[in-house]
Design a protein around this nucleic acid. Structure first.
Lengths: 196, 196
DNA sequence: TAGAAAAGTTGAGACTGTCTCGATATCTTT
DNA sequence: AAAGATATCGAGACAGTCTCAACTTTTCTA
């Protein structure tokens, strides 16, 4: 579905493409090791290019992170679509939510970037986010039709829950994130409609 | 309950105390305006002291933020205790949760600091957090006894939910945070115990 | 394939911010 | 009022972000 090779915008000169990829590779390594707060200058240094070159490819830290995330997001959306075939609609939804949370947790520190990307049209990630949201929407719609979740649950609710739970897990401990996700999902269920 | 005057550790020299207070005041203003990412150097500048003086009072950004938050936290704990008198235990809990979320939202960007402070014994805020957690625990316990929330709901769950919802509200829109909180609280309810 | 045009790279440098520390100034105490 | 304890000062060592004009490499085209 995806070559694994990062996707620069258009045709690039050969040397430019080489640098682009080296930078992205270094960034991925730095990210895996330190989260989102690595030094951009350091990335350039380790990739063996001048920092001006770095900025030529990625105007801001955000641009870089977005390039890093795009592929993952698309995969997640695909997983969502597969789960539409799950026996229980609610279970499909819950399974997907857990997978999404793991995804977000791996990219620790990026929850904020993700949340903002959905709303920001200028974000590179916007398209990918929309796809994820669409996948979520389908899962939610199916569960709703089956009467397994409340009628007022929306895809953005799901998206927010997943990201918030991932965030909570990052701040305290991963199990806390999972608990939160579980409670939230239960809050989505039809049986939870506490009339007051 | 609280003089409103920030609380330096011990007896300080008069000039030192004056500087301490000016710094804290500037920090509060900067915080209100830009969230947690203001420049420490700038605070010193605006307070009219050398930056070395700043660092003499607050070793790290965190120290400063903690000083800024302590009082608010204590207030929140007190509110929790008052709400123990609410007619409906669940409503008392929910009301407090909403208040706590507002509190956290005002101090936008500090959710992370709060979450970590609970677990970090070296934090100035640790005591205040414990107090908040204790207040939450009492509210949860009361609701649990009344059979209004699941038996496995804990104060840390509540704490995590509130902070995560506040975070979500910061990232997208405040209403999204409130929705998340509502779903989470419903997930806490006894009726939501989806056996599977 | 040479030369021109396009595309990309370079690294110095202008800023800003974090943090340290010895010299200096200011309180407090006796 | 002098000594001693406390603070403040501000220069300076670093690191990071970002820009830009000069320069180099690639690609295009005749």
């Amino acid at each position: 579905m995806d070559t694994g090779t990062p996707t620069p915008r258009r045709r690039m000169r050969a040397d430019a493409r080489r640098n682009y990829e080296r930078l992205l590779a270094e960034a991925a390594a730095a990210f895996a090791e330190h989260g989102a707060d690595f030094s951009l200058e350091g990335i350039a240094r380790r990739a063996g290019v001048a920092n001006g070159t770095f900025y030529g490819h990625f105007a801001t830290r955000r641009t870089l992170l977005e390039a890093l995330l795009g592929d993952r997001m698309r995969t997640l959306a695909a997983t969502g679509t597969e789960l539409l075939a799950a026996r229980s609609p609610f279970e499909g939804l819950a399974t997907w939510a857990r997978a999404a949370m793991v995804h977000t947790t791996i990219y620790r520190g990026l929850g904020a970037a993700l949340m903002q990307a959905v709303e920001d049209e200028t974000s590179e990630l916007h398209t990918a986010c929309k796809a994820v949201l669409a996948a979520g929407e389908e899962l939610v719609a199916r569960a709703r039709t089956a009467g397994e979740v409340r009628p007022d649950v929306t895809a953005p609710d799901l998206y927010a829950l997943v990201n918030a739970a991932a965030w909570a897990g990052e701040q305290s401990s991963p199990p806390q994130g999972e608990r939160l996700l579980a409670f939230g999902l239960d809050g989505f269920r039809t049986s939870a409609t506490g009339r007051e």
